[in-house]
Design a binder for these strands. Sequence first.
DNA 1: GTCTATACCGCGATAGAC
DNA 2: GTCTATCGCGGTATAGAC
Lengths: 202, 202
Amino acid sequence: MLQVVAKRKTREEILELSVPLFARYGYDGVAMRDIASTVGVTPAALYYHFPDKENLYLDVVAYAFEERLAVLKKILAGGGSPRQRLEEFITENARVMATDKNFIRLMQWAALDSNEARLQKLSHCVFKDLFIAIYHLASELDDRYDPHLLAISIIGLVYFHFEAGATRHLMPGYLPHQDDPQVVAEHVIQLLHDSISETVTY
Amino acid sequence: MLQVVAKRKTREEILELSVPLFARYGYDGVAMRDIASTVGVTPAALYYHFPDKENLYLDVVAYAFEERLAVLKKILAGGGSPRQRLEEFITENARVMATDKNFIRLMQWAALDSNEARLQKLSHCVFKDLFIAIYHLASELDDRYDPHLLAISIIGLVYFHFEAGATRHLMPGYLPHQDDPQVVAEHVIQLLHDSISETVTY
DNA sequence: GTCTATACCGCGATAGAC
DNA sequence: GTCTATCGCGGTATAGAC
């Protein structure tokens, strides 16, 4: 029993401490030695908890996304009009991305992954559920738009403000308050407000 | 003279053939051995043309972007109303991203670069000019919006449709025609059409 | 300009003691 | 569960012949 507790503890600690490393440096940019020294164990110890680097990485990504995505999915499944849910989703999404820098960077790394197996696994297990929820919301919002394209646009509008974060700071017109998730959310909501007219009634 | 021509030729061939490699696998994912064998020389030969991998990479990225960005900047600097230039820019931007898969992936890698020096150099030398042009266009379009945020939104809307490409294909509602740049451009233009009202006259 | 040959290092992973 | 020790590979980069 004590062993199980200790095991769970170390395993979770490895996951927890690996998140910012993989978020910042990507799969190739993090060595097992880096993780080990961050956690305070030797590299060999990692192989007791995970079969190899590949599986450790996948577990780290799933661990990092689990909680965040659950919150977003809950909002999309909640009550209120489609328009209301859209605005709540945008606001919460901006809040998550501004709060948790690791979240967006892990998504970026995932999008670039040239390893087909990893890409499929992440797409299917991690992102698909959320996309389906947004897709359904998009279908309810305005039937003049292809819901797939509209879903991508809604995600991309928020996502890109934070994805571009590092480079955006070097560009003209940058002001610190543009990093405020509330400001970004209001901008996106305003932009979508006039574009989308409710066409489905309940 | 013959030497100079030969030198230029090989150097350019290295740049040309390295683009798809770095685009697909990123800086860490490409070995000098890979480039060498693709070009058909030995790794040592690369070090005659470039001082190290870092500089080779930077030259490759600049080489890949030069032509594409010039076209986009030209459109933004061209005549017509702000709204017209916006639509032309969106259309051409979608066309470039659909045609040249390397373009967007190199941008994605650049955005993730944890090497501060590389990030700054790329931001400043490669992207800044284009952003300034879009920023000015945004200022002319609709003064209800913060031009910096609007510029980011305009870029992000097109960008994300193609950035999400690989994962999007695994998501519900995907249809092959959504990869058509004309379809994406029309979707984005429609979306922005009702959001933006011309407020500056000429 | 390009080659052969190689130095040198850091990587993932494993064996076996404790 | 974690350690020490190590193997084998593949990475960048260089020296020096041609």
